[in-house]
Nucleic acid binder design. Structure first.
Lengths: 151, 151
DNA sequence: CAACCACCTGCAACTGTGTTGCGGGTGTCC
DNA sequence: GGACACCCGCAACACAGTTGCAGGTGGTTG
C-alpha cells in the first residue's frame, strides 16, 4: 500500500528500506512508523517531536501516536533518544552498526543536535565499581547557520 | 543521603566560602543562595531540583525561589545546568577554573550524574562553519551503587 | 466468508517540571 | 527615614510527555 511519502522515485526506495527495517524487528510496517523512520534516517540531525510533526506536514499523525511511534522505535533499537539542553527529547535513527560511541554537536544558539562521524575518544578510567556501557562526545558551540547570522 | 544543613563548625567555613563567591559576583549573599551553593559545592554529583529540595530539609525554600536561585547561579557562572536523560535539569557547582571541557558519568539505572576529573579528550575537527565553545565527554553506564544492587 | 484477535490510532484528560505575575518583605544607600 | 533595588513566596500558568479508553485496521483461523 505504501501511501507515498513523496512522489519522487528515489525516496520510495528509502521508504522501502525503512519498512524492511521495521519488519525485520517483527512488527507491522504501518504508514506512521515508516514515515517517521524514513524521516529520521534522512535527517542530518536529531529531531524534536515538534520538528518531526512539522516535517511530516499534512501527513502528520496525532501527537500521541507520534510519541508512541517514537517510543516504539527507541524500544526496538531503531532510534535513539536524548534530552537536549532545553530538556526536550531529540530523536535520531540508529546507525545500523554499533552506537556505543558517538559524537554529537549541540548548537547553543538554535539548540539543534548534529550527529558527527568522529574518532572514538580514548576510554578514560572510572572510579571503583562504575561500569561503562556507552560513551558519548558532546560538543557545544554554534552551527554553521547560526555562525553566519552571528547575532 | 545528604543530611540536612548541619550546625557542625567545619561547614560554617564552607558556607562562608559560598557566601564569598556570591559576593564576589556583586550580589547579596542571601541565605537561600548560600545554602544552595553550599549544597551544590559539597555534592559529588549533579543534583535535580527535587533532590536539592529534599536535601535542604526543613530549611527548604519555596519551589519557585529555588528555581530562581538556581537560574541566578547559572547565569552568574557559579553553577552549571544540564538536562539529564529523564529530561530533568541537573545542577552542579562550577569549578573555580575553567569548565570548557568536562566529563560526566550518567548512571542509566538511577539517572544520577557524576562529575569526573578526566583528561580532556582530543578536540576533533568540525564541518565547515561550525565553531566550538565547549566540549564534554559523556559516559553512560551504572554507578557503583547500582552495580552493587545489580537489579 | 465471518468471527476473532492482536495491534495500531486518535481523542481527551492527566502529570510533573519549569515559568510568569504580582504583592509584600528586607536590606541598602543617600 | 524615605526611596530604591532586590529578594521571597503564593498562585496561576505553559508545555512536553503520558495514560486510559474507545474505535479502527489487518491478519489469521475455523
Amino acid at each position: 500500500m505504501m501511501t507515498s511519502v513523496t512522489r519522487a522515485s528515489e525516496t520510495t526506495a528509502e521508504a522501502a528500506t525503512a519498512a524492511m527495517l521495521i519488519r525485520r524487528v517483527g512488527a507491522r510496517a504501518t504508514p506512521a512508523r515508516v514515515r517517521v523512520l524514513w524521516l529520521l534516517r534522512s535527517a542530518p540531525a536529531a529531531l524534536t517531536h515538534h520538528e518531526i510533526e512539522k516535517a511530516l506536514g499534512e501527513l502528520a499523525l496525532d501527537r500521541v501516536t507520534l510519541y508512541r511511534v517514537l517510543d516504539w522505535l527507541v524500544e526496538s533499537g531503531l532510534a535513539h533518544r536524548n534530552a537536549d539542553a532545553q530538556r526536550m527529547f531529540r530523536f535520531s535513527a540508529a546507525s545500523s552498526g554499533e552506537h556505543a560511541t558517538h559524537t554529537h554537536f549541540r548548537c547553543e544558539n538554535c539548540g539543534r543536535v548534529f550527529c558527527l562521524d568522529a574518532v572514538p575518544p580514548s576510554p578514560p578510567h572510572l572510579p571503583e565499581g562504575f561500569s561503562l556501557s556507552r560513551l558519548e562526545l558532546d560538543l557545544r558551540g554554534r552551527c554553521a547557520e547560526c555562525t553566519c547570522e552571528q547575532r
